[in-house]
Design a protein around this nucleic acid. Structure first.
Lengths: 151, 151
DNA sequence: CTTGCTGCAAAAGGTTTGCAGCTCC
DNA sequence: GGAGCTGCAAACCTTTTGCAGCAAG
């Protein structure tokens, strides 16, 4: 984990009267080091290997705190469960219906086009907090051609 | 319910070797007549008033069939639960974080801008099935000024 | 009549909650 | 030392599943 991020985490916690615990450090590290937008359970499984006594409840509570304080993002999926994303820069996601992977789709220009368009439209009676493009489909793996049951 | 929609429902069911049951008619009618993107539970509650013996399991199974056959859309929400939408034309949603309402945001031009942009970008290794803009925020009610606990 | 559907009830995920004991500051 | 956090287990909520009896074609 980059030193600057560690500082941000500690500062944010301290600034909110929250304690810097081992569990919080490890959970943050795990999300930051993951490129796969892990679920709470996946974070739990990964951490448990080195830290067998951590509990799933703590993972959930900690994720809640991190989301609330703007340290990570919660991502909802077509399957209905939640995933977590350490990248805070504005970006969108590709949802693979076959593998359940969430792939990052960073495109500042597109984000800008959409937000400019919405601004120009001046949606009445609605205070926009977040704009997110959900692109669902299927990842095409060039190397291995995979066959699925429902084809 | 419009006659054409009723026909579409019956034809789709019959065409797939599925039976046209009272429950299916009522569930379809309920979604079609709803402007609020109901959850399974909400559909259940509404139908139960006139149809006390219907079961929630049937609602879920029926919704699954309808979604599979392209008669309705399933919509996932920031809260994680699923909602159902009878409008099949391409459109986007505004998610109100205060009231949990889902408001329709129909804007063909925007949908076109986004899909054209993505086409021009030619995303490799991903076969796009659906593009959906999720706009989250807060509905502003002009008439009544509401105070929330967390202000 | 036969296949598929319904209602019921149980089970399965995923997430939240309550609380006693422990940790950080 | 005291507020806040953790681990545990139970509870919760939404959705799925299995099955015996029932209804549609």
């Amino acid at each position: 984990m980059k030193q600057s991020l560690l500082h941000k985490l500690k500062d944010t916690l301290a600034g909110n009267g929250l304690k810097v615990t081992h569990q919080r450090l490890v959970i943050f590290e795990t999300i930051d080091g993951a490129s796969n937008h892990p679920s709470a359970e996946q974070i739990y499984d990964k951490i448990r290997k080195k830290n067998p006594s951590i509990s799933l409840g703590t993972i959930y509570k900690t994720l809640e705190v991190f989301v609330e304080k703007g340290l990570i993002n919660r991502v909802n999926t077509p399957k209905g469960n939640m995933r977590y994303d350490g990248i805070m820069e504005n970006h969108n996601h590709l949802y693979c219906l076959n593998t359940n992977e969430i792939l990052d789709f960073k495109d500042e220009k597109l984000s800008e086009i959409i937000s400019d368009y919405l601004k120009s439209k001046k949606i009445n009676n609605f205070n926009i907090k977040d704009i997110r493009l959900h692109i669902t489909g299927e990842k095409i793996d060039i190397d291995k051609k995979v066959n699925f049951d429902n084809n």
